[in-house]
């Protein structure tokens, strides 16, 4: 069985006919070739698939694509092109707040979500704010530094 799906992704209208069981992150990656969102655990723990749906941070592996009917979805690709997360990206590069880069797109979404709610977080608040996103390479210290730096910028 397939269902029709229409939504907006990174500002572009998208229509597709998909299986209802397809997860949103798989739809973005496999149907739209938006491979910047990563499937790290596929059970909602690691945060590598974090994206914005109607302005809220969502785990792309815990939402079915058909649930995004009519929604406005933003992924790292679109957030990069609009410059929405440019300050964070610059700080992540300058501070080497990424190593393998697999968690980074989701981490940036989490960081942007945090800064939107709390533009001047303390280090502790940053640590809490991104605790839903695993990073296996950095040990987090540099990520905290980079978010702190971006918040000050």
């Amino acid at each position: 069985m397939k269902l029709d799906l229409s939504l907006t992704v990174n500002g572009e209208a998208v229509s597709a006919r998909i299986e209802p069981r397809m997860h949103l992150v798989d739809f973005l990656r496999e149907v739209l070739d938006l491979t910047g969102s990563h499937a790290g655990c596929e059970h909602g723990v690691c945060g590598a698939c974090s994206i914005l749906v109607n302005g809220q941070m969502v785990r792309g592996c815990l939402m079915l694509a058909v649930q995004a009917e009519g929604a406005e979805v933003w992924t790292v690709e679109g957030l990069t092109e609009t410059g929405a997360i440019a300050a964070l990206q610059e700080a992540f590069v300058a501070r080497n707040a990424l190593q393998c880069g697999f968690c980074t797109p989701g981490m940036l979404v989490a960081a942007a979500t945090l800064l939107k709610a709390n533009p001047t977080p303390t280090r502790e608040e940053i640590r809490e704010g991104i605790s839903g996103n695993y990073c296996r390479c950095t040990g987090y210290h540099a990520i905290i530094d980079a978010i702190e730096q971006a918040a000050r910028a």
């Binding site: 491979t35 910047g36 992924t75 990069t80 990206q89 992540f92 880069g101 797109p105």
Partner: peptide
Amino acid sequence: VPRPNAKRLVAGRGQYVDD
């Protein structure tokens, strides 16, 4: 100095095998 390949990765333009 910053890593030259980091800019690509923060933009979601990595090329991991599953991509």
